[in-house]
Design a protein around this nucleic acid. Structure first.
Lengths: 199, 199
DNA sequence: TTGTTTTTCGAATTAGTGGTCGAATATTAA
DNA sequence: TTAATATTCGACCACTAATTCGAAAAACAA
């Protein structure tokens, strides 16, 4: 018998509960300290039950990554579609990302740190990541070409800004989170638009 | 009987050999894949012997961190002592760090990544790290005060530049390493000195 | 030489950890 | 009510990896 809609939703909700638990455990104990036992306890299921819903530990993390990146991509899509100057789109993009990161810091950190530890092929979320990186690269290239950014090798700039951004979000002992205003101001000042002297 | 000078040196050399092996294993397998068995094999000792020289696995990593940070600090000290404009010292500092990072990329990456995984108190290397961060913060504060940098909250700038720099050194698939020239150019362009328009 | 100290390491031991089993316990549909 | 079906989980298994043991080989000093 095909399971009813309600059943499906409940099952999905249970999966989500496990996913949330996993993220909590990760946040508390680091990606290494996140054991299935902990996750089971945190999410309120027996360990074996986790395996009823997920094929493996990796599968759990995989789904977090997938959902996380998908969400990021979808939040960013409108900004990307929105035609505007590269520089402007770029800044809007970063601000939006900061917003997302601020909203769920644990998730965001996981999204960027977990891959270093987990390592696997055929990760569907990589598709989103690549797309996003591609867009950013393109924005930088266009911006440099149109003279909106200083003339720096875009790839280098990408790396640097990637690091910069990660730094903003993660670095230090995360006392005070960085506000949108901060990001905007910082970017506006660092990435001086050569065309306009006041801004 | 007190061990002779030569004995002490040989022992020290053996420890170093183990440390090097550990770093190799780390570089090859990531910080998680670095097992004592691997390290033993890589460094050419029996596993139990590692424990003759080091109290624990953590101790091994701890000593790498310690030596690494100490070395960085000592390489940087002359630049720090050297009186000059904050902006200039700052750039020289970063370039020097890039140099060090380039010379021993594995070590450098370890220095910045391991702490996230290992986590422990009373790590003597933290002292060096704090000192260095303090100096950089100071440089930024002075620079902003003296109008050599754009007026941005120095702490924020510190985080951002920290991330930026890490990005330069680590991020991406580390195809082509970033040259000093790149760093210098990038910094010169990003951190525009408001006082001089040509540079 | 020879007794002592230093160094070495294979073989346990120990502590976890991911994953599985099989038996309950609910839930559902007829 | 009842026979499936879905869900749950404690106990277990297999394996990995850090750490320890105990004895032996080297190096050393007398």
């Amino acid at each position: 018998m095909a399971p009813s809609q309600r059943q499906i939703e409940e099952r999905e909700a249970r999966k989500q509960r496990i996913l949330d638990g996993a993220l909590n455990v990760f946040k508390a104990n680091g990606i290494e300290g996140a054991t299935m036992d902990h996750i089971a306890q945190e999410s309120g299921f027996g360990k074996a039950t986790l395996y009823y819903y997920f094929k493996s530990k990796e599968d759990v993390f995989s789904e977090i990554l997938e959902a996380g990146w998908k969400n990021i991509w979808e939040s960013l899509e409108p900004i990307i579609a929105d035609q505007g100057s590269p520089r402007n789109s770029f800044i809007k993009l970063l601000i939006k990302i900061a917003e997302i990161a601020q909203a769920r810091p644990g998730l965001f950190e996981f999204l960027f740190n977990a891959p270093k530890t987990i390592k696997l092929e055929n990760q569907p979320w990589k598709e989103y990541q690549h797309r996003l990186y591609g867009v950013i690269q393109g924005l930088l290239e266009d911006g440099v070409r149109e003279g909106e950014f200083p003339k720096i090798n875009p790839e280098l700039m990408f790396k640097a800004l990637g690091g910069l951004f990660m730094g903003l979000v993660f670095m230090g002992d995360k006392k005070d989170p960085v506000s949108e205003k901060d990001v905007e101001k910082l970017l506006n000042q660092l990435i001086t638009d050569p065309n306009y002297s006041s801004n």
